[in-house]
Design a protein around this nucleic acid. Structure first.
Length: 603
DNA sequence: GCCGTTTTCGGCCCGACTGTTTTCAGTCG
C-alpha cells in the first residue's frame, strides 16, 4: 500500500497522543497536531513531494524536524520516534483520551496508579471504587467515568449535517419562545456546513443578565434531555435522548458578534484570529476585541473582523485553510449562493426509483425558483431501482418533449443516470445517449476495485463522446461507506481534458465531491454541478446542503455549472454532447486505446 | 517543535465549568 497523507497524519496524531500522556511540552504536542491537520487537508501528495525532492520546510508548520520524519515515514513506512514512544507507553492507553473529561494528565495518573490500559480495564477499576483512591480523583469523577465509558461503548459520535440541522432548528424555536431571549442562532460545525456534526452549538442573547438563569433552567430541564453535562451561568451542555450533545452559550447583545464568531469556530480559525489580534496589540475573546480594558468591537461579526483589519469571512471558509491571508489580501472568493442556481442536473422520477411524476418534479423545481431540471433516472443495470432500458428511456424522452410543450416557467432536460460498468463502458447504447440533453454517469457497484483500475474505469467512462457529468465521484455514503479508492486529481484532470464536469451531489448522505475535492476541481478549471439527486419533489430542497459544501470548497458562481442560464448551459454541454463527429471520434479512439492497455481485466 | 518588518530566543488563544481543592489544575471548546 502506498503511503498517503492520511497515513503520515495518523502517525503524527498518535505521536501527539503519546507525548501528551508522557506530559511532554504542550507546544511540541501542538506542533505534531498542527502538522497532522495540515497534512490531512493538504491538496498535494506529500509522498510525491518527497520523491521530487521538494522542500517540505515550505509547508506551514513543518520545520526541519518534522520534514525529516515525513521523509522517513514516506520512505520506510515506519517512524522511529513512534516506535520508541510505544515502548515507553502502551499505545492502547491513548484510547483512554477519548473518554470525555479524561485528558493526558488524568490518563497518565490512572495508568501509573492503577495500571489500567484499556477502556474495559478502566471501567472495572471505576466500578470497584479504585479510581477515587487516586490523588485528584473523587467519587463524582469515578461515577462520571463509568457513565462515559458505558456510553462510549454504545453511541456513535457524529451525525449528518441534515440531522443536526433539524434538531437545531427545533431547539432554536424553543429557545426563541423563552421570555427574555432576544436572538438564538446556530454556531459550530453546523453553521460552517461541515458534512457531519459532532455536537450542536447554539448561541443566545438575553435582554438582561437576570434572564440568563431562567433560560439555562429551561434549556437543561427541557423535554428530551437525557443528561446535563454542564450547567453554568453563561454556558450549559446537555445530551439529548438521541445521544446528540448540545451546547448553549448565553451572552449580552453587545457581545453577540464576538460570541457568534468564537462559537462558530473553527478552533483553528479562532486561534489564527486571536494571534492576529495579539500582533496588533489587541485581545480577542468571546466578548469582543479589546485594547486594554476598552472594547473596540463585538456587536457583530463584521465589526470584529473590521477591528482586525479584515473583511467579513463567511462561516464556511473558517477552517484556517488560507482564508485569513485571502481576507488580508482582499482576494476572498464571492461564494456561490443558493439563489445563484438556475437549475438542477440530477433528479429522479417514478419511472425508476423516484416517488413523483415528471409533472410533479417539474412543478416542484419551478417552485424552488429553478429554470430547468434534468430528469436522470437510472439505467437498466440497477434493477433494484427499476432502471430504464433503451425502450423505456426512449419513451421517457418522447414524454418529456411532449411535457415541455405544455410547461411554463420550467424546462425539463432529458438525461439519464447511466451506470458506469466495471470496465468503464456505459450501460445504454450510444445511439440513445446521443438523443439526450446530458448524460450523467455514475458508479453503483464494484466500489472495491484497486485504485488504478477504479481510476481508469472513471476516465474511460468520460471518454465516451456523450458523457457529460460524473455523478457522486467517490461514491461515499457518510457514516456508512468510505469513498472509493480512486486517484481524484487524475480524474479531475481527465475531466478537464475531455470537457466533462463533476458533480457535487447535494444529498446529505453523500456530499460528494467534498469540500477539498471542490477546491481541486476549481484549481483545474473543471466546473462543478451542484445537484440534488432528488428522489422526490421534497428532496429538491436538499440543494442547500450542496451549496454549503461548495462554499466550503471556495466555489464562486462562476465555478458552478448550473448557475448558467439554460442557453449557456446547453452550449457548455454541447462541448461534450455535440462535438464534431470526426474530431471526437479521433480523440475517443486514442483515449480508448490507452485505457484498454491500462485496464488489467480487459481483453 | 515551529516561527519571526520588534525577535534566531522566547514566545506559542482565551475563558467557562467541574471537581477536588482550600486556591487551583484539568479539561473543553
Amino acid at each position: 500500500m502506498p503511503i498517503v497523507n492520511a497515513d503520515v497524519a495518523a502517525v503524527f496524531d498518535e505521536i501527539a497522543d503519546l507525548l501528551e500522556v508522557q506530559d511532554a511540552n504542550v507546544f511540541r504536542v501542538r506542533a505534531y497536531r498542527n502538522a497532522s491537520r495540515m497534512l490531512s487537508e493538504l491538496g498535494r501528495d506529500v509522498k510525491t513531494m518527497v520523491e521530487r525532492g521538494e522542500d517540505l520546510d515550505a509547508l506551514p508548520g513543518i520545520g526541519p524536524d518534522l520534514a525529516g520524519r515525513i521523509t522517513e515515514i514516506v520512505g520506510t513506512g515506519r517512524c522511529a520516534l513512534l516506535d520508541d514512544l510505544r515502548k515507553q507507553v502502551p499505545p492502547a492507553v491513548t484510547g483512554l483520551l477519548k473518554v470525555p473529561g479524561l485528558g493526558p494528565r488524568r490518563v497518565a495518573a490512572l495508568h501509573h496508579a492503577l495500571g489500567v490500559r484499556t477502556l474495559p480495564q478502566l471501567l472495572r477499576a471505576a466500578r470497584q471504587g479504585r479510581v477515587r483512591a487516586v490523588l485528584g480523583f473523587g467519587p463524582k469523577t469515578e461515577a462520571h467515568i463509568v457513565d462515559a465509558v458505558t456510553a462510549r461503548l454504545q453511541t456513535e459520535r457524529r451525525v449528518r449535517l441534515s440531522v443536526a440541522d433539524q434538531v437545531a432548528q427545533a431547539l432554536l424555536a424553543e429557545l426563541k419562545a423563552i421570555p427574555g431571549v432576544q436572538q438564538a442562532v446556530a454556531a459550530g460545525s453546523l453553521r460552517r456546513c461541515r458534512d457531519t456534526v459532532g455536537d450542536i452549538d447554539l448561541l443566545a442573547t438575553v435582554d438582561s443578565a437576570a434572564a440568563r438563569g431562567p433560560v439555562m433552567e429551561r434549556f437543561t430541564g427541557g423535554r428530551g434531555v437525557k443528561r446535563v453535562l454542564m450547567h453554568g451561568a453563561t454556558r450549559s451542555s446537555i445530551v439529548l435522548d438521541s445521544g446528540l450533545q448540545v451546547d448553549l452559550r448565553v451572552v449580552p447583545p453587545a457581545s453577540f458578534g464576538a460570541a457568534w464568531l468564537y462559537f462558530t469556530g473553527s478552533k483553528a480559525h479562532n486561534i489564527a484570529l486571536r494571534r492576529l489580534a495579539q500582533e496588533q496589540g489587541f485581545k480577542l475573546n468571546e466578548y469582543g476585541v479589546y485594547q486594554g480594558a476598552r472594547r473596540l468591537a463585538g456587536g457583530t461579526e463584521a465589526s470584529v473582523y473590521g477591528a482586525l483589519g479584515l473583511p467579513f469571512i463567511a462561516p464556511e471558509l473558517r477552517e484556517d485553510r488560507g482564508e485569513i491571508d485571502a481576507a488580508r489580501a482582499g482576494t476572498l472568493p464571492a461564494l456561490v449562493e443558493r439563489a445563484d442556481l438556475r437549475g438542477d442536473l440530477h433528479a429522479h422520477s417514478r419511472d425508476s426509483d423516484g416517488h413523483d411524476s415528471l409533472e410533479a418534479m417539474a412543478e416542484a423545481a419551478r417552485q424552488q425558483g429553478l429554470a430547468y431540471l434534468a430528469i436522470t433516472d437510472h439505467s437498466k443495470r440497477l434493477g433494484i431501482a427499476h432502471g430504464l432500458d433503451a425502450d423505456r428511456l426512449a419513451r421517457q424522452i418522447d414524454r418529456i418533449d411532449a411535457l415541455n410543450a405544455r410547461l411554463h416557467g420550467i424546462v425539463l432536460l432529458k438525461g439519464v443516470e447511466v451506470d458506469i460498468l466495471e470496465d468503464g463502458r456505459l450501460d445504454l447504447p450510444d445511439e440513445l445517449l446521443g438523443r439526450l440533453d446530458l448524460v450523467v454517469g455514475a458508479v453503483h457497484h464494484r466500489f472495491d476495485l484497486p485504485r488504478a483500475a477504479q481510476t481508469t474505469r472513471l476516465q474511460r467512462a468520460m471518454d465516451h463522446p456523450h458523457f457529460s457529468i460524473l455523478a457522486h465521484p467517490t461514491c461515499r455514503l457518510i457514516g456508512e461507506r468510505p469513498a472509493m479508492d480512486v486517484d481524484l486529481p487524475a480524474v479531475i484532470q481527465h475531466a478537464r481534458q475531455r470537457g466533462c464536469f463533476l458533480e457535487l451531489n447535494a444529498h446529505p448522505a453523500r456530499l460528494d465531491l467534498d469540500d477539498q475535492a471542490c477546491r481541486l476541481a476549481q484549481g483545474e478549471g473543471v466546473l462543478v454541478s451542484i445537484a440534488s439527486d432528488a428522489h422526490s419533489a421534497l428532496e429538491l430542497d436538499g440543494l442547500r446542503f450542496g451549496i454549503g459544501q461548495a462554499r466550503r470548497g471556495w466555489l464562486s458562481t462562476h465555478d458552478v455549472l448550473n448557475t448558467r442560464p439554460l442557453s449557456a448551459l446547453r452550449t457548455l454541454l454541447g462541448r461534450t454532447m455535440g462535438r464534431p463527429a470526426s474530431r471526437v471520434g479521433a480523440v475517443r479512439e486514442r483515449m480508448t486505446r490507452t485505457v484498454h492497455r491500462a485496464l488489467p481485466n480487459n481483453p
